[in-house]
Design a protein around this nucleic acid. Structure first.
Lengths: 127, 127
DNA sequence: TGCTAACTACGAAATGATTCGTATTAAATT
DNA sequence: AATTTAATACGAATCATTTCGTAGTTAGCA
């Protein structure tokens, strides 16, 4: 299975399509423009490239293309994480987790959920 | 304080300089070549750019430049993490932590260290 | 002193991402 | 049916990164 390394622009679009697919270029472009000014043909071009890369599928209805995201969010996130671990954390996802935990305030609720998850993991593996 | 977003090539060099500074271009290039073939002037150019960006400082001794890393590993890692959280994890570092925990096997030792850290964090904040 | 080896500086080519203008095509309206 | 509207396709400009060749400079040695 290949590794997905979408660019920042692509990630913005993926995010919207993971929320809801399919969508047209027009819809995506309108949503993007709530954040910042982006030309329609810019969005079109990027989505065409994403289609070429296999990140999106599309179906034609009338003259409009409806785009659907075809890569999983989970897998994409994992690929991006793996890359960061490899390039910036000496290949140690433990180091990454510790650093991520250290930044910002975290609610008791979140901390508890992490603890629960750790317990669950401990049940599964054994080193 | 500005955000550091070193490229992949820059990160490879930073990694070596965080291990030990200062070093010469020649030294870095030799180390890089243990992994893959890289031309000397390629390494030189990248280190010159990193110098321009303020990632490195240098002092001249004879005709040789000795380069020292001038950005903190901790801060750089945090910037890269923050960017990933923002672009791919809906701005939630909690989501990132959970995903990172889920991948790969983790030793009991690591899990315990994470638990300890969580306890420590809980002592500090209160939501 | 003059030659050689090694280093730096600089420019330019190649690649990928981003942006957008223009041409074309298809649907909808008059 | 002709015109207008809105979509797609395509090519080109710009920008950053990566790569490397070449020219120039400096230090050390014969």
């Amino acid at each position: 299975m290949s590794d997905y390394k979408p660019t920042d622009s692509e990630l913005e679009i993926l995010k919207l399509l993971w929320e809801k697919s399919p969508r047209t270029v027009r819809e995506i472009n309108n949503l993007l423009n709530q954040e910042k000014k982006v030309g329609y043909t810019t969005t079109l071009k990027i989505m065409q490239i994403m289609y070429q890369k296999g990140y999106l599928t599309r179906t034609k209805q009338g003259k409009v293309h409806y785009y659907t995201v075809s890569i999983e969010q989970q897998k994409t996130r994992q690929d991006l994480l793996d890359k960061l671990v490899k390039t910036a954390f000496d290949g140690s996802s433990f180091k990454l987790v510790m650093q991520a935990l250290g930044s910002g305030t975290r609610s008791k609720n979140e901390l508890d959920k992490i603890r629960q998850y750790l317990d669950q993991l401990e049940g599964e593996n054994n080193d």
